[in-house]
């Protein structure tokens, strides 16, 4: 029974793996091109496990920026995981704390989205399968890219980043067709993010965090008293 859930979680990770592998490969290639060793490239993907921040690190490293600038920018970009982990924690009420802690370390935009949507109360084995498969695919992608950096040009692998957007769209649309409120929330959050990052030129990490918090908060007040989504 439990093995069955683990396998189901691993299968649910498949669309995510299709996105993670090429982006991981792109990261591995670019990291090697920047002169970062194979070991450090793979180590970064293993202990940081945050695509946007890792690409940003390469960019800042290439510009010669130092330790504190890079660490602070990473914190800013990845602080959204706090909110995602907080939201996901609500789904895991009865799970033992050590498991929750372990799972929380696998929080990414993609794992959070797959775990939260279409799955009102996911169990710990399902999440284990989903999170572990995703994590391994990110590391394997990086390793492949770092090994083949002289053979594959990074731009081919990069154009596959559309895969992750297609995954997000595939998660969002079925949810919003069942409830127009959720669609309105998502659109408001998109507009806020466009406004903050495109017009006010706020750092993309903060922008995404604020628009997520505000977009969902608007929902609380606008839809108050209405049918609660659960």
């Amino acid at each position: 029974m439990n093995d069955h859930s683990f396998t189901k979680g691993a299968i649910a990770a498949l669309p995510l793996v299709i996105g993670f592998l090429p982006v991981g490969i792109a990261f591995g290639i670019i990291a090697r091109e920047m002169g970062i060793s194979l070991f450090y490239s793979v180590l970064m993907s293993s202990v940081v496990y945050g695509g946007a921040s890792q690409f940003m690190m390469l960019n800042m490293f290439a510009k010669g920026l130092g330790f504190f600038e890079i660490i602070f920018a990473t914190f800013v970009i990845n602080f959204r995981f706090f909110v995602m982990s907080l939201s996901m924690n609500q789904l895991l009420k009865k799970v033992p704390k050590r498991w929750k802690t372990l799972l929380s370390l696998g929080t990414t935009d993609e794992t959070f989205a797959v775990a939260s949507i279409n799955n009102t109360k996911p169990n710990v084995y399902y999440l284990g399968g989903l999170f572990l498969t995703s994590y391994v695919s990110w590391i394997l992608g990086t390793l492949t890219g770092a090994l083949l950096s002289t053979i594959i040009p990074s731009n081919i692998s990069e154009s596959m980043s559309i895969a992750l957007y297609a995954l997000f769209i595939g998660l969002l649309i079925p949810a919003v067709t069942t409830s127009w409120k959720l669609g309105l929330l998502a659109v408001m959050s998109m507009m806020l993010n466009g406004l903050f990052s495109g017009w006010l030129l706020i750092n993309s990490g903060w922008s995404m965090l604020f628009s997520t918090l505000l977009g969902s908060l608007i929902g609380v007040f606008v839809f108050k008293g209405g049918k609660q989504h659960d």
Partner: peptide, 22 residues
């Protein structure tokens, strides 16, 4: 309730405007 809405708002912010920068 706020936390339960976060996945949908987050998906919106993750898609747009990032998708324009592929």
């Amino acid at each position: 309730l706020w936390l339960s809405y976060i996945p949908y708002a987050a998906l919106g912010a993750l898609i747009f405007p990032g998708i324009l920068t592929i």
